[in-house]
């Protein structure tokens, strides 16, 4: 007993002596590997990315410093503006549809079943690689042999060139990714639904409110902060569409799916215009930062509905 007390007091005096540094040396040892990873593969490339955006660099030789020429060029590059327009179109269709479908799915799951298996099935598309999802739908939506066009044929409508037409390509790719993400998004919303206390529903049932009315007047307002967070996550993810396009349309037909990620990829690794590609990724960086800020502001505005 007494030895324990003295040991504790010894620790206390030791702690007092090294309060300024604390466990600094131990901490440095524990941090070393991840700090190396952070500096070499996150911090340094970020700084280097900004520098590259001010240069002309073709992967061979040294980078030539240009100043802001790349950014001037970008203003007059129709393909850049096209990629922004196409990306925005994709994000709007993707997020719009995905949020509505996921919300409906989450509410259905919440009201109808507790089954973890059903929730697992719903999550399945999200676990499969983008490339796999893209190829399966590429096959299902094939103009000649795809099952979806067979169905459309049976109904008596005209076949749709899902990947082959400029009007259909982006909506098609947006729908494919709605399919992949709706279950995951639904489970995020589902977690939010579970945080709404039961008594709120009991009270609205006692007041004789229908399910429909309860959804619009009770569930949705209480879900607002969670919806805002889900939107932050999914909008930023949506801007980064690449895999699906890379294995299906590769930017075509006629630039109609040349989204910003794919344009940067092409500039850097097919045309070896690294400096210009870096300049566009700086713009993307700024756009995504702006989107996140705006959305987080929205989030704070909807903070305290429940408590």
């Amino acid at each position: 007993m007494s030895s324990q007390v003295s040991a504790q007091s010894a620790i206390k005096t030791g702690a007092r002596r090294s309060r300024r540094l604390g466990d600094l040396w131990v901490a440095l040892a524990f941090l070393l590997p991840s700090a190396v990873g952070f500096v070499v593969f996150y911090l340094w490339p970020t700084i280097r990315g900004f520098y590259l955006s001010l240069t002309d660099y073709s992967l061979l030789g040294d980078a030539q410093f240009l100043g802001f020429d790349n950014f001037q060029r970008l203003f007059n590059d129709p393909l850049f503006w096209n990629s922004l327009r196409v990306t925005l179109l994709y994000v709007v269709i993707n997020i719009g549809l995905q949020t509505v479908v996921a919300l409906a799915l989450a509410v259905l799951l919440h009201r109808l079943t507790q089954s973890v298996t059903i929730r697992g099935l719903v999550l399945l598309p999200y676990l499969v690689a983008n490339v796999v999802v893209a190829l399966v739908w590429f096959w299902m939506l094939d103009y000649q042999l795809g099952i979806v066009n067979q169905l459309i044929d049976w109904i008596g409508l005209g076949r749709i060139p899902f990947f082959g037409s400029e009007t259909w390509a982006i909506p098609t790719i947006a729908m494919i990714n709605v399919w992949r993400h709706m279950g995951y998004t639904a489970l995020l919303i589902f977690a939010g639904l579970q945080m709404i206390p039961k008594y709120v529903y009991e009270a609205s049932a006692l007041d004789g409110a229908s399910e429909w009315r309860t959804f619009w007047r009770v569930t949705l307002p209480l879900l607002r902060p969670i919806m805002a967070l889900v939107l932050v996550l999914s909008v930023i993810g949506s801007f980064q569409i690449f895999d699906t396009i890379a294995v299906t349309t590769a930017g075509g037909p006629v630039d109609s799916t040349r989204v910003i990620y794919f344009y940067i990829f092409e500039l850097a690794f097919e045309r070896f215009d690294f400096g210009y590609a870096a300049a566009i990724s700086v713009v993307l960086f700024l756009i995504l930062g702006g989107v996140a800020m705006a959305q987080l502001k929205m989030l704070r505005a909807g903070d305290s509905d429940l408590s």
Binding site: F41, P45, T46, G49, L52, A277, S281, F285, A292
Partner: peptide, 18 residues
């Protein structure tokens, strides 16, 4: 580092790995 879009670091990382 969460704020940096992956493609931003992908370009310089490619040069580094090369």
């Amino acid at each position: 580092a969460l704020m940096v879009p992956p493609i931003f670091t992908t370009l310089p990382n490619f040069i580094l790995i090369r």
